[in-house]
Design a protein around this nucleic acid. Sequence first.
DNA 1: CATGAATGAGGTTTCATTCAT
DNA 2: GATGAATGAAACCTCATTCAT
Lengths: 206, 206, 206, 206
Amino acid sequence: MARPPQTSPLKPRKQPSQPRAEKTVAALLEAAAQVLERDGLEGFNTNAVARRAGVSIGSLYQYFPGKDALILALMRREGERFYAEAAHALDMPTGAEGLRALIAAAVRQQLERPTLARLLDVEETRPALRAEKEGGVLERVLQQILERPDLPRQLDVALAARDLMAMVASLTDTAGEHGELDVPHLERRIHAAMFGYLDRMESPLP
Amino acid sequence: MARPPQTSPLKPRKQPSQPRAEKTVAALLEAAAQVLERDGLEGFNTNAVARRAGVSIGSLYQYFPGKDALILALMRREGERFYAEAAHALDMPTGAEGLRALIAAAVRQQLERPTLARLLDVEETRPALRAEKEGGVLERVLQQILERPDLPRQLDVALAARDLMAMVASLTDTAGEHGELDVPHLERRIHAAMFGYLDRMESPLP
Amino acid sequence: MARPPQTSPLKPRKQPSQPRAEKTVAALLEAAAQVLERDGLEGFNTNAVARRAGVSIGSLYQYFPGKDALILALMRREGERFYAEAAHALDMPTGAEGLRALIAAAVRQQLERPTLARLLDVEETRPALRAEKEGGVLERVLQQILERPDLPRQLDVALAARDLMAMVASLTDTAGEHGELDVPHLERRIHAAMFGYLDRMESPLP
Amino acid sequence: MARPPQTSPLKPRKQPSQPRAEKTVAALLEAAAQVLERDGLEGFNTNAVARRAGVSIGSLYQYFPGKDALILALMRREGERFYAEAAHALDMPTGAEGLRALIAAAVRQQLERPTLARLLDVEETRPALRAEKEGGVLERVLQQILERPDLPRQLDVALAARDLMAMVASLTDTAGEHGELDVPHLERRIHAAMFGYLDRMESPLP
DNA sequence: CATGAATGAGGTTTCATTCAT
DNA sequence: GATGAATGAAACCTCATTCAT
């Protein structure tokens, strides 16, 4: 039976220090991603992940205290993949260019593995995971960009950031779902929505 | 023994003919909605639904061949609730007003039971359900409105409708998730995004 | 949810690699046999088998995807038990002696666990199982014996083998059902029927 | 739930005296036969029978106190159908002719609805039913025939009758299973087995 | 450390039977 | 009588997790 967990159910169990361990963890994460993509949330289970990783179920539990920890780690992995590109947006000379760079990064990430990205987004709202997941990189970067002087001033920057993030995610998600491949066209539509939103929501100077 | 299922796992099993049965079905649907809201997708199971409906598990299976049929029926119920308001948008004199009416309806629906709406949106993308669910009312109404002459002409109306729908859904979803109650403000932001998108994506006259 | 079964409902799920597992599988098979004997087909269910095997229901499903797989495996087990004796019949110098040996083996097998043998015979005709079960050893051995020159020549050897098998099975079954213990007497009656049949059905030389 | 039955679970509940009731009972029995033929023992259930009979499940329970009573009644129906032909065998001038007539009747009955006959045979051995079912007509008729002077004298007539019955049943069953249609040929084989058996088991005069 | 066998709570689903209408 | 909605025990089966080897 599922006894009460003896360790935090979400923190990774051990830092893989040896290279072999690191490879196992990586294999498990990639397997988790693939199972999620192939079988969806309802087909996602620890046995399937271990099997696909070519690792015993016991080993999975060596590195992850449970199913949710696996998902959380996957979220972090994808978050970090994204960070490399997203941070770069802050170096842009203008806010508009930064925003474009951010959109490009988000679109690229989302379209690369659309199903995975979508399902992780869904999981992200589960209370159990939401608590653990630290506030997204995107959110913080986006807020900074929105404060650049060349962009229309927003009354509530955090709110605007939330709205824009939701829009980027949903537009790329549906594009991904429908198999769109024309990235520039998708970016144009996202720009339209975002800059349209920012312009029309511009707050008069105080 | 594991017999192959004798009915489709999605089509309702029998339509209630007596009023007592109709009440049972209604109770089951409402219970399904409440379980979804309270416990999320992972807490959603047939036992919980039957219990909350105050009905035996056997009765549930008289009318629904399983979980997914329940969700599908719930989608249809909400879809019909929405239809009353949405169809009304076509009566508006201008496209802009129609669009506003549509947004208002969507926002009202989504904010009334935000969690339910959100989870049904999520489920809607599951391949198993997506196949069954007939194309949404919203989609058809929206396409008609977008063809009104006062709105910026779009090159691909179906694509625009899809994008707008995604945006409305995501903006109201996140608003709902964050407990926003200021409906007019939310509507303003949605208008900003949608009209901004339409303006900037306007296609030159042929 | 009712997912379509991911494995054939008849093929064993995994072959036990560790000796512990092998013991479990053996215990399950023997338990299946005993449940069948004690409670008949209508009392035969996976829970009862697992309980009697002293094994959790989960373990049963590790090795057998369901009831039918268990029955099929049991058939094979009994088939193999029989094979040791039956093959031996081919070593006999004459067809008559071979036939007698075969009958003796069949009778011994059937009377050892008469109920089990009978119920497996019944199950063997279920379409679902019949497809899987490879043509019996007995059938092939019997056909070879019937071609020996000292036995009356049959027009259709396969048909004759089928008839004889049916007769042996039914005579031993009823004997078993009625608690007969006098093996030699039973064998005499079977000989009478079989040699009587063969003599009277002898086909004239071509 | 299945409460302890308040009436004997096997005796018909009411004698259908009105013609409408008689029609309902007949429809239920024929439906039971068809369900058995189509879906086998594991697909046989009261709801399916009622549905196929075009009768409510409640009505089924008006006339039959339970599933087993239905099966028992079906056995009796088939038994009576058989009796008409079988009794006739006693009118034959010689035992041999009587035996032939009996075989012919048995073969005709079994081949007419082979699956039904087979499954009823199987059910007949269930302890619950066996207790209720009065000793077969065939058995008594056969014993009388075996005592005719022109047939080889048997030491234990009851035993011989049992053996012969088993043989007839199994030979016709397998023939039926394999779709044989050549009735005369099947009868020849059965004669061979039966007269062969009787000849060889003839007991010396006391 | 790795393995994979074992566990069993808890989910899904059926179906014999009852009973209110 | 006839109907069919309702019931719930009991079957089926999965999968997160533990633990002996």
